[in-house]
Nucleic acid binder design. Structure first.
Lengths: 140, 140
DNA sequence: GGCAACTCCTTTGTATGCGAACCATTAACC
DNA sequence: GGTTAATGGTTCGCATACAAAGGAGTTGCC
């Protein structure tokens, strides 16, 4: 059995990466039966919060690179989760809307996110949960 | 419009992802002048801790998928950061060693990691830093 | 000895993630 | 009003990530 270097458990960048890796993986598995990825779920949440956003606005809201978002949106249109509508005012822009299929599953999908969050924080006391979120917000 | 039960700033999976995104990006930028990536730096730290590890052992230590590691190691050999030596006892296995070039930069590179950690936690009190790391360890 | 099971690693396929270059369009300004 | 700057989106290149399958090698067990 290989031991972990003493330094690693003290390296916050490493710890943060691994905590994210686990949280992301768990959420991904939870979403797999729906044919959605973590990222695609996030996009839907953004559009449920405000329909008709452009890719640039959505990227700003979700802190995502436009190059990344471009591919994600294309696959989501392909899979019928969202709709792109070119703006008549500015032909560079597309307004984004969740599809009927997405809206039908809205409640269930939001519930899955809540469950994922609950599962992630299961080992924390209520106080620790609030504190943890507060600290994460500082880092962003 | 239907309201969202839980706002994005309260979604821990999201917060964790964004905190990681920022930490990872900052460390990546810090390492760029050396021609190293975050992941490659991590591999070197693992091998400095114990030379001659196999890919499987290193993956276990760093919690990395073997498929991911395979490509990373290939690029690191290509770039002259590490050396792969086939084991005479078991021809499936490669033992991994940091190159002379890597060892020459060991002190500097470890210093960069420390600086990255310091920068990341700059907004936290000493108490918060310890608490944050403790909470992250629970999640792994 | 021999074959099944297991292990190590690679390969393939899909999905991020971001910098940089690029095209089309719109805004800004002289 | 025409050149320049800025913006929105796509594409390319590179580097993770991981599931799944596959090839090569080793072990276990009768």
């Amino acid at each position: 059995m290989t031991k972990i270097p003493e330094d690693l458990p003290d390296c916050t960048v490493f710890l943060l990466g691994k905590a994210y890796q686990k949280a992301h993986g768990d959420f991904q598995k939870r979403l797999k039966p729906y044919g959605l990825t973590n990222m695609q779920h996030l996009v839907l949440e953004g559009l449920w919060y405000q329909e008709g956003l452009t890719a640039a606005e959505l990227g700003k809201m979700l802190i995502l690179d436009k190059a990344t978002l471009s591919g994600v949106l294309e696959r989501m249109v392909e899979a019928g989760w969202i709709r792109k509508e070119q703006s008549p005012d500015d032909r560079r822009i597309f307004h984004l809307y969740p599809s009927a299929k997405a809206n039908d599953m809205k409640e269930v999908l939001i519930e899955e996110r809540k469950k994922a969050n609950g599962e992630l924080l299961a080992g924390f006391s209520l106080e620790e949960q609030l504190l943890f979120k507060r600290l994460l917000r500082v880092l962003m």
